[in-house]
Design a protein around this nucleic acid. Sequence first.
DNA 1: CAATCTTTCCAAACCGCTTTGGACGCGAAA
DNA 2: TTTCGCGTCCAAAGCGGTTTGGAAAGATTG
Lengths: 343, 343
Amino acid sequence: MGVTLKELAASLGLSPTTVSRALNGYPEVNIKTRQRVADAARAANYHPNTRAKSLATGQSRAVGHVIPISTSHEIVNPIFADFIAGAGEAYSRAGYDMVLSVVPDAEEEAAYRNLVARGTVDGLMVHGPRLHDDRIGLLHDLGLPFMVHGRSSGVNTPYSWLDINNRRSFRRATEFLLDLGHTRIALVNGLEGMDFAMRRRTGYLDALEAAGIAPDRALMRTAEMTEPYGHQAGRELLRLPDPPTAMLASSMIVAYGLRRALTEVGLQPGRDVSVITHDDDLSYMPNGLDVPQFTATCSSVRDAGRKAAEMLLALVNDPDLGPINHLMETRLVLGDSTGRNRL
Amino acid sequence: MGVTLKELAASLGLSPTTVSRALNGYPEVNIKTRQRVADAARAANYHPNTRAKSLATGQSRAVGHVIPISTSHEIVNPIFADFIAGAGEAYSRAGYDMVLSVVPDAEEEAAYRNLVARGTVDGLMVHGPRLHDDRIGLLHDLGLPFMVHGRSSGVNTPYSWLDINNRRSFRRATEFLLDLGHTRIALVNGLEGMDFAMRRRTGYLDALEAAGIAPDRALMRTAEMTEPYGHQAGRELLRLPDPPTAMLASSMIVAYGLRRALTEVGLQPGRDVSVITHDDDLSYMPNGLDVPQFTATCSSVRDAGRKAAEMLLALVNDPDLGPINHLMETRLVLGDSTGRNRL
DNA sequence: CAATCTTTCCAAACCGCTTTGGACGCGAAA
DNA sequence: TTTCGCGTCCAAAGCGGTTTGGAAAGATTG
């Protein structure tokens, strides 16, 4: 493999101690020696062995992400890739490694315990929190710093999280549709076991209630967010005796499905039926090339990943930091998919 | 953190040596002692420290995936999540960790060198190979086992890869369209710097040539695979003086865009214009709920991840294994998006 | 019964790094 | 001159495992 510290030291006629100190910026080494060491290290392409270093320091300089695969749905969250990309950027900038554990949700707890007991990581990221998520209590007990991407309603112990303001976001979107004169507004949501979906529904209901409109269960759908789901939900909604004139989608890909359902029966988004979607700003799913195709509540999940990673590293470097939170607001971008209610 | 071997040994009145051997299945330990140790280890939730173990054995029991982020496009490959999910499954089953390095493509080489020099991983996975990809030569020199997901034309040194038969797959799809009477067939491809895109184009051209049809540059598009790209490409193709009657899409999401372009001008996929797409069988992008919405060349990228990971582990465990390859055929599934040429 | 294996265990070295506790030489202060 | 402090370096003890080379006791053999 690579050169070892010992070899490097020998080639310089110095002790490993001095070389180590020179490279790690300790004061007790002559400036000329330090320079000599630095040059030699570069020339030999010396990189300290990760395992040895972390064994000696007690820190692994790595963080873990546990990705749950729902055994019932076998689905991988599409936002995962962009979140990881953002987080990975922050990690590599800080010189941290990222280790990923992909596990069926039944083995999630074991996965967390494993990573902690084996000392593989200094911190953990929790993805896809559900309502009353057990993992938070578990991680609290395990004692390693962790960040949650999202929140978990019903959990009492304080914890660190980063989330978007799902509730306000969907309230805002609903109000926007109400202002356009819509009163029959459908919500095509994600799986409601997920915390974010519940919050979105709450925001939607908030707005309806404020407007004095009674919610209609027939207008509220929930499922794993795919295009065919959006399509089917759209078709069913349009076939209702009193169909909605506006629809709220929980993701861009669901909105694609809704649009297909509309155009299939000759309806045009924005003119005949309004559609607003949440847009995670996924790199491979841009909201139009130049102008936005959908009116959307927009928030970059990549930025979220970057920020969440930075927060996690802050927690790792200062364990006394206590729970830290960050709530990101979304911005409402106007596209062609919304318009006045013409009924 | 967790219990250490030394502590466990002390609590049992045994030496660390014996405990280590008992846990690792060495023969020179009494069956009763072994049992006693196993019980105690389970009771104490003992897991050997990753770093110490790998330092002692010289193996990290981890593999690295370097994910390049194109600095020009800033795009994360959408198939990445499912591939990782498949690979991760194989790794955790084998007791290996997966470490991810997300880096701008300019720093890719440094990332590989780093992982190797620091001894962080025992093997590497290469994603998104381009034509004449430098990384293969680099990894060859670095001497660590590696697998390429895809291939790289123009590379002479032998290497291990897993790929789908892109060429035959697109030749087959094109022939299918030719059999339906289509002669003006468009190819809406991915970025042609990518090896897979080049192969698909070749398969497409093979079929045209065999049918005695001269390729038309106006019918061949290439870009990053997004829905808006598919939409735009579809619009432009339909506006040609002599528009295509069939289209080949490089991914499901591009096909969504094509379909939008068709329906926008009142054309129906399958009846008026035929569309075939490649389908990576992404979990969040199913090809219809019950019946396939698109005729597609289908191959699960998740299975590919699983298989590629298994191959990489085989290489890690037997360095003399030499280059191993696996070529997966796609299956053509029939959907509603194709039909006879009615012109 | 002595000699020779086996079985079962342990002490100690080692993996590659960090870090503690000096050692040594030199200039400044007493 | 002696003492002290400082700058610069090093030897050695870890970190938590694995592994080599015995050692002691019991079983087997001639």
